[in-house]
Design a binder for these strands. Structure first.
Lengths: 233, 233, 233, 233
DNA sequence: AATGAATGAGTGTTCATTCAT
DNA sequence: TATGAATGAACACTCATTCAT
């Protein structure tokens, strides 16, 4: 982001500005992390600004230098969580070529991010409703953006004639939701299967719903679902 | 429940007790409705006991005659919502015989209840986390109970040799979740399709994945998804 | 209290009135007892009208038929306690003839009533201040009245030439106060001596100061204070 | 406490900490005074936190920065009162040598402190019961500590062969209680005698109860009780 | 930039009192 | 006479927000 600057007086100001920006970034991160950590446990309403300040090791007053209000901070926390997801998911997909395996990779990547941010995911479900319209719209956009890779992979598989013609938007949205369900219904799934089994079970179900029967053999490994542990002989 | 009683003191007491119970039920309903109405808009934390009292047309004090605390009221609201769902869904399914159409009927019934209680559904997602362990367990039980008809329908279709052998629990859980998505992602779906199209699209995807290919023709109507409006001629 | 009434129609009304009075007396007693029982444990402010009603086995509304307000009830409780003391103490003194032993008997009687109404005694100390002027004056009168027998006994001993000429009012007041101290400082005395030793110790000190030295021998038993248990040999 | 510090950051922190402590002490005093002032009139239950805040000229919230709860504040008020007494009484006694006059000086000092804190004294009687066990124990300790000088003076007089052998604990406790009676029965005594007469009357009575007759002459001035005003001629 | 003392509106909750039955 | 549902003012306490330092 920061461009290279020529040395001299002008750069002096630049350097200062950069230093300030850097410090502000650190502060911002520090505050968001502290807030997220606390809110994930009990929701934003149970967490006071004082508690966040303490957790971040700063004073209450300082928070207001970076965020106008508690709501602004809550918004930033949620958007931060979604942002990170929107950033991490595409990174996890790219290398795969085969359209169907691309869908599978996207789902796996998405699910893993959810797994790693389980409580943060729940936070977005719980807290979004208490934000103002504008923030909610922003969040919806982020969510759609996050779902973009999955949608493109699905459309790719359809165009490649591997998936049947169907509503790609709905199908990919379902996949995202099902990935979320690891967080939403963690109490249910985590007692019944490992995360890996969850992913392969869900993938199997979903791909059966999309793959044309003539390709069932080609992707038999994905359709098979969780396998018993390999023979240890 | 009340047995026929000879006239006199005994029946007198019965009548009194019944009258009291009736009055209490009315109050309870009145309070739950008012609370649900307000909480659906913004979540329980933004709603004060005074506001609920006003909405219900009673005094604050009276609420505490029926609920020990705000948390108890919130819990009752949520459980009330889930209870109603648990009651309505089985009612909407029964008549169907064909196992596959039974699954379809269950999904449709479930989705319709969600549609009719959209905000209440969101409420359960938002508020459950702030209740105590015990209430959460109660809610989980209710949820699993609500899902029972769907699970049985799925298992029926598998045993009838119509559905692939697969993890029936996960499949039926996914169906419930997808029905929920009409509430969770209303902003997304409602702008893109009607509720009926949502249902038939989702059913088409799910059943395509579950039905053995040899039965695709038999249930072609379900797999087809939403159809263009019939010729208006 | 109730006078005999001639038979006839007039007496009918009388009978009714008497019955009513009797019932009211029972109620009054029932309520005062319940209230006193609860208030002695924690003070009037911690006790709600509902709690008193429950303890008395009646409804809240009924209390208001007999007492205009909570304050009126508190007042009645305190006055009831003092009344009972004012009634019991003179009864316990009468038989004694010797002026000095009369003082001793009065003190003992007073102390025993205090011992038997320890918590009620504390109640009067705690609650009197929160009553209105009028009630406080009434209570002061009662207290002075209760102290009358002690004052008379003291004056008798002085006039009989057994006690020094001194301020009889102050002396007898001190005796009352010292009897109270069994309640006021129960935590102190009860750990250090029996009630009987408390009484004889206090008597010994007080009488030693009041008796003219030439009578010390005559009342040596009272001046001796608590004695070791009689030789069991 | 503060050691001399070289100038620089360390002393800076010290100065800050000291300034803060000083400010906190001022606040504490301000709050305790306001609370005591109000509570002495009607007891802690009739005084709201808002009223205390107003009386102290601060906001309600600020009180909670210094005291965790209303009970904590009440406790602090009572303990503050007792503390001050425990501090003042020994100071008023020291100089006297003669054992009997030492007892007299102790009583006078104690009574004067009571006189100067009459309402506060009543407060301790009224409010102690509503505190928790721990606070009550603390208060009992304070009270016993406050009584220590009187006990020692009494024991001194006994050992010097001036007082008769008796229970010194009980005797000195009686003296304290009798000093309290200026507060407890102010309405009685204040109408009948001046504070000075109260003290000398009580001293006279008490010393008669303790002094061996052979020393009556030596302390005739103390035993005489209140004297008519000196000839104004 | 950073602190944290101070504010005061707002909350959940209690409870004396009333009154229709 | 007796009930207890209903009221609503009052309370202790919290916490987002401000601002002097």
């Amino acid at each position: 982001m920061a461009t290279t600057t020529a040395p001299g007086t002008a750069s002096r100001q630049n350097a200062d500005a950069e230093a300030r920006n850097a410090r502000e970034d650190v502060r911002t991160r520090q505050l968001l992390d502290a807030a997220a950590r606390l809110m994930q446990q009990t929701g934003s309403h149970q967490v006071s600004m004082k508690a966040i300040a303490d957790e971040a090791g700063v004073s209450v007053g300082l928070i207001y230098r970076y965020y106008d209000s508690k709501e602004a901070l809550v918004r930033a926390v949620i958007i931060g969580v979604l942002d990170e997801m929107a950033y991490n998911i595409p990174r996890a997909i790219e290398p795969v070529e085969d359209p169907v395996r691309k869908v599978a990779a996207a789902f796996t990547a998405y699910a893993e991010v959810i797994r790693d941010n389980r409580r943060a995911t729940l936070l977005t479900y719980r807290e979004t409703a208490s934000l103002d319209r504008e923030s909610q719209d922003l969040i919806k956009n982020l969510e759609m953006q996050t779902g973009q890779p999955m949608l493109q992979a699905t459309q790719g598989a359809i165009e490649a004639g591997l998936f049947r013609r169907m509503n790609a938007r709905v199908f990919s949205y379902d996949l995202l939701l099902i990935a979320h369900s690891w967080a939403l219904k963690f109490w249910y799934f985590s007692e019944r299967m490992s995360f890996e089994d969850f992913v392969s079970t869900q993938l199997s179900i979903a791909l059966y719903g999309a793959l044309l029967p003539e390709y069932h053999d080609t992707y038999a490994d994905l359709l098979a679902g969780p396998q018993p542990p390999a023979d240890k002989q």
